[in-house]
Amino acid sequence: MVRVVLPSHLRTLAHVDSEVELDVQGVATQRSVLDALEARYPVLRGTIRDHVTLQRRPFIRFFACEQDLSHDSPDSPLPERVADGTEPFLVIGAIAGG
């Protein structure tokens, strides 16, 4: 079970109040976690990564275990503490503007 924390505007869009718990098939990676997230909440498709290229949107960041994972390969295994649900996978709206 992987825990995902969404930024508030995406929680509102998906109608979730708190963090999301997902059963992820196979190795927990950015791709597999986001696949599972979008399968459960189709309205989030296109809001975190591009519909077609599946690349992370420019103002979205991925943090976990006090690390910025945004530039890691989407197929790299996530930290073990994320994969086992100890730590959440954070989807962050980057600071933009003054």
Binding site: A14, H15, V16, R40, P42, T47, H51
Partner: peptide
């Protein structure tokens, strides 16, 4: 999917 686990309608229309 037409209903989230919480019962809200959800979907994908931004493509």
């Amino acid at each position: 999917v037409t209903k989230s686990p919480q019962g809200w309608p959800v979907g994908e229309s931004n493509r």
